[in-house]
Computed example of a mutant assay.
Amino acid sequence: MIRARGLTKTFSRRKEVVEAVKGIDVDVAEGELVAFLGPNGAGKSTTLRMLTSLLEPTAGEAQVAGYDVVAHPAQVRARLGFIGQGNGGGFSYKVVDELHNQGRFYGLAPAVYRERAADLMAALELSGLEKRAVQSLSGGQRRRLDVALGLMNHPPLLFLDEPTTGLDPHSRANLWEHITAMRERYGMTVVLTTHYLDEADSMAERVVVIDHGEIIADAAPGVLKHEHADDALTLVVSGGDEPAVRAAVPDGFGEVVVFPHDPSTGSGGPDGLRVRVATARGADALPGVIEAFRLAGLTTTSASVRQASLDDVFLNLTGRSLREEAAA
């Protein structure tokens, strides 16, 4: 569905040449849902603008939905849907008029765009809102209208640019339920950008991380977490001092941090020691650590596992947290 080779974009800023995208190679297979992640200014948005034919590459090539983005931009745009960060519907226009106009923009016959608008409104729980002005809709209803607008041409490829930004958790979950249903119904390929790492983790088959204009990681979320981040074991132990605790941790583990534990505050105080151990596959490793402490005469009074997250991966790869990027 997407094939890019050596995709490059440079900009001239006064006498300086800025290389925003540096020879990216990427493939997206038909039917995949791929998340593109990157810090602000990393080249992610520039890459997507080139893939959607909105920005001509300086060098390299890309075929999207079977067409070259430079030679046949109109054919590319006719075969993709795009849901941006802002609302697509005009505030003072009626919901049904916006959908019908979107159908007209794609050159659909009146009978076709009326039928598609009705189907999409029913599927996205917008029935009964046909005559409502867009500005009168709730935030969740507006985003569902954006999804309907992006699907009026039944695109084989859908771009979602931070589709749930600003929505409350319930509305986010509801919107994703509808997007997933529409993806299954139409068999679409989906390219997603988001600052919510849980969305990329749970929804995407692959995650592509872009930084400084280059792809620095491209794999399934589970693979990225295994290769670029550790789980964290947290145990509270008693019966020994810090050197004894450190000596009891088996070889082959990552960073070990030991500090006093106070059950009333969670830190500080003399009541045992809190131990944090970095490791891959933490749930599998935890029983062995507890047994090693027992053999060393230490008593484990509590234990927990925090699994590695995509934010850990992002931080380790780029030196920045995507949560911080979103806040910025």
Rank of each mutant, 00 (worst) to 15 (best):
P155I: 02
R206H: 15
T10D: 13
A78I: 00
E324V: 03
R306A: 14
H100V: 02
Q141S: 07
W176Y: 10
V313H: 01
E291V: 10
A248N: 01
V76M: 06
G38Q: 15
V223L: 05
M188R: 06
E115L: 07
S171R: 08
T10L: 10
E130W: 10
V223C: 00
E98R: 05
P156D: 14
F11R: 11
F91P: 09
R5M: 06
V69G: 04
V305L: 00
V26N: 01
V69T: 12
A117Y: 05
E16P: 01
N316Q: 12
E214N: 07
L129M: 06
Q63G: 01
V17P: 02
H226W: 03
V190T: 06
A74F: 10
P250R: 11
G90C: 08
M203E: 10
L197V: 14
Y186C: 08
A248H: 04
D211I: 12
D251G: 09
F314Q: 06
S309Y: 03
R3I: 09
V96Y: 15
H72M: 09
M121Y: 06
A244V: 00
A308W: 05
Y67M: 03
I83F: 04
L322R: 06
H228V: 09
D97Y: 11
L310M: 02
S238V: 07
G90F: 15
K15W: 07
L126G: 04
G41Y: 14
A42F: 10
G187L: 10
P57M: 10
E162S: 09
G81E: 13
G38I: 15
Q75H: 14
G187I: 09
R143C: 04
V223F: 02
T318F: 03
K225S: 06
L197F: 08
L80P: 00
V64L: 09
L124M: 11
P73G: 08
G187R: 12
L99M: 14
R49Q: 11
